[in-house]
């Protein structure tokens, strides 16, 4: 009985995904005949090759990968550094800076797109990787997450390392970071996911296929192939596969990253 409810729910959740996959495996008129449209046998696999040739999805995904990795690395690094400062260091105006970091959480990026666009243009970074990555190289959310993890490092470890002659740098990379690894991994996965899924900013600043990321690439694919919807759907499937894999492999970290704000509050 409970299984019925679970299965029905699962079907509803999976329906859009299933339909997209099913339609991507058919062409033309056959995809319009219900109910056979839902059961593509035999499946037309050639479309997936065209997704990469005509649809250029390979390039788009490469761009997304480059940008997402760059953003992730940058965010992890800046969060570690800043998180360390907040967790272990005493310095003047510490609270002010803390609030300053907090304030960036209040300004959603959509509010500043016009001004940020002008800034990027000023640096001549339109249609470039730098332009895609730079605005997102730091994150207050990540900083607080890492700070939280650092605060959990026992005092004795800190004292011990100081006695052993380790300065801050040694302590940071030798002790604190390894201990905070789960949180840092969570941040990494989370940052990657957010960066991969970005839409508005890449839309604004990319103009050519050379730098388009996969989300905007999908939009290009969709408007460029109005008559070949199986190609568009195939592209959609392909574009989502990397993240599905990410979800499966890093499920734990992902969950942790998402819930870090929720449960403790």
């Amino acid at each position: 009985m409970q299984y019925t409810a679970l299965t029905v729910a699962a079907i509803v959740v999976l329906l859009p995904i299933y339909v997209t996959v099913a339609f991507s495996l058919q062409t033309g008129a056959s995809a319009l005949d219900f109910p056979s449209s839902l059961f593509p046998f035999p499946p037309e696999l050639s479309v997936f090759r065209r997704v990469f040739s005509v649809g250029n999805l390979g390039r788009y995904m490469l761009n997304s990968a480059i940008v997402a990795v760059a953003i992730t690395v940058a965010q992890v690094l800046t969060s570690i550094l800043a998180g360390y400062a907040f967790a272990f260091l005493r310095f003047p105006a510490r609270n002010v800076v803390f609030v300053g970091f907090l304030a960036t959480l209040m300004v959603p990026s959509e509010v500043t797109i016009v001004a940020n666009y002008d800034t990027i243009v000023g640096f001549d970074w339109l249609d470039s990787y730098q332009g895609l990555v730079a605005p997102f190289m730091a994150t207050a959310f990540g900083t607080f997450l890492v700070r939280q993890a650092f605060l959990a490092v026992p005092q004795d470890l800190r004292d011990a390392s100081r006695l052993d002659g380790y300065g801050h740098w040694g302590f940071m990379w030798g002790v604190a970071v390894p201990l905070a690894r789960p949180a840092i991994a969570a941040l990494g996965v989370f940052s990657f996911l957010l960066a991969w899924n970005q839409y508005l900013w890449p839309l604004l600043i990319t103009n050519t296929d050379d730098r388009r990321t996969v989300q905007i690439g999908l939009k290009t694919l969709a408007s460029n192939n109005v008559n070949e919807f199986n190609l568009v759907f195939a592209g959609t499937v392909v574009a989502s596969i990397p993240i599905f894999i990410l979800l499966l492999v890093f499920q734990k970290q992902l969950v942790r990253g998402l819930t870090s704000g929720a449960v403790k509050g």
């Binding site: 249609d127 103009n207 408007s223």
Partner: peptide
């Protein structure tokens, strides 16, 4: 060749580029 979306989008992009851009 560089595809820029529909005519409207392409014109928008061009006019935006006038304010600074390639």
């Amino acid at each position: 060749l560089q595809f820029q979306g529909g005519y409207t989008e392409s014109l928008d992009k061009y006019l935006t580029a006038l304010r600074g851009g390639t």
